[in-house]
Design a protein around this nucleic acid. Structure first.
Length: 159
DNA sequence: GCCAACGTTGGC
DNA sequence: GCCAACGTTGGC
């Protein structure tokens, strides 16, 4: 199976790339969207590349890279009645929500703002710049991924 | 903080 | 199974 490319959105006030760098790796929990759940379940593989994107902040931008190191597993927060993401309708023997584990790879020397992607026609077909598009984990085409990595000032790592 | 776009819920 | 109401996302 060829390596896939993803974009993970996060509000830096909640969990930033700096947080990931400090933690080295993290379990991506709190996803409560069926499309993303299905991507986690069916498509995300170990070794897939992740563009880390900061949303809902002063300058929304792709800020660096991560990679998938752990396949989908049940998200424990769905069973925790005190958690923000508690889901009373999810059963332990049939968990509704999944998360994956990602690891820090690098921070771009130069973040790539959403605005730049919007003004560059190469990215016209990229999901991220589509109107009303809200998926917090989305597939990215290799060409888009590579172009953004280049704009961020770091060559794509061979792996 | 506004609001457009979207997903989900629930009444019928 | 339709669709209005509601909640959330996320750029601006």
């Amino acid at each position: 199976m060829p390596k896939r490319y993803w974009l993970f959105k996060s509000e830096p006030s909640a969990y930033s790339l700096e947080d990931l760098e400090r933690d080295t790796s993290t379990f991506w929990d709190g996803i409560r969207n069926y499309q993303v759940r299905n991507s986690f379940r069916d498509d995300v593989q170990r070794g897939d590349a992740v563009l880390f994107y900061h949303s809902s902040c002063k300058v929304p931008a792709a800020v660096g890279l991560a990679k998938v190191i752990g396949l989908a597993e049940p998200d424990p927060t769905q069973f925790d009645a005190k958690a923000k993401y508690y889901d009373a309708g999810s059963k332990r023997d049939d968990p509704r929500w999944l998360g994956v584990t990602i690891e820090f790879v690098s921070r771009f020397p130069r973040p790539v703002p959403l605005e730049e992607l919007k003004s560059d026609e190469r990215f016209d077909t990229m999901l991220l710049v589509q109107r009303g598009q809200r998926l917090s984990v989305q597939p990215v085409e290799k060409a888009h991924f590579d172009a953004i990595v280049k704009m961020g000032g770091k060559a794509t790592k061979k792996s």
